[in-house]
Amino acid sequence: MSLRIVVCVKYVPDATGDRHFADDLTVDRDDVDGLLSELDEYAVEQALQIADEADDAEITVLTVGPEDAKDALRKALSMGADKAIHVEDDDLHGSDVMGTSLVLAKAIEKAGYDLVITGMASTDGTMGVLPAILAERLGVPQVTLLSEVKVEDGTVTGRRDGDSASEQLEASLPAVVSVTDQSGEARYPSFKGIMAAKKKPVESWDLDELDIEAEEVGLEGSWTAVDSAAQRPARTAGTIVKDEGEGGKQLAEFLAGQKFI
């Protein structure tokens, strides 16, 4: 039987661009160029490697996001994923992690899965909690923050490098896995991959198709509210000296003045 892998990928504003908030205090996704979150490339890469090892596997990439989020799906398809699902609905604008995770969980169930793979965190929201929430919602084991992952005979194993210990984990499928940027460099799409991606199927689903009411998601349906967002005041320009042989001593003098020594 085929191993059904669903990879959750997010379309995010480019971190090297001028990221900011829109008037309604949601992340502005219009004015800044977007791309497939770099941290989700690692998830796609691990899915491809797991599929290579399996006798028979199918990789579906899934995103919840605006029209442009198709770019993220295309990139994942050109890396080698088989097909894509784009959940898109005007009512989704402004969803928080509870709303997004609800939509992803319903979509994953509808698509059918043995293994869900996500990145460690999105590069815009940087919460890093969605994988755990997905596992809770789907009622399957959570095997998260792996720097190494393997799937064999219906079991997923992996290494989680935590703050105080490195742990070896094991769970039966179906399961939700998240991988870190220590899991191995993601491949670049080849020219052949890019051409092939153009012909791969991308399905579009809306909230109706997932039996989700508009009130459950979006800005109104969020369980959190952002009241204000302010640009951090620029740091006051500091003193910069060129080392002419005394740089270390000058720095020590500064640190002493600040009572660090």
Binding site: R19, H20, F21, L25, S222, W223, T224, A225, V226, D227, S228, A229, A230, Q231, R232
Partner: peptide, 9 residues
């Protein structure tokens, strides 16, 4: 680069 104030609603 930004500071936000939020609540759980």
């Amino acid at each position: 680069s930004f500071t936000t104030k939020s609540r759980v609603s």
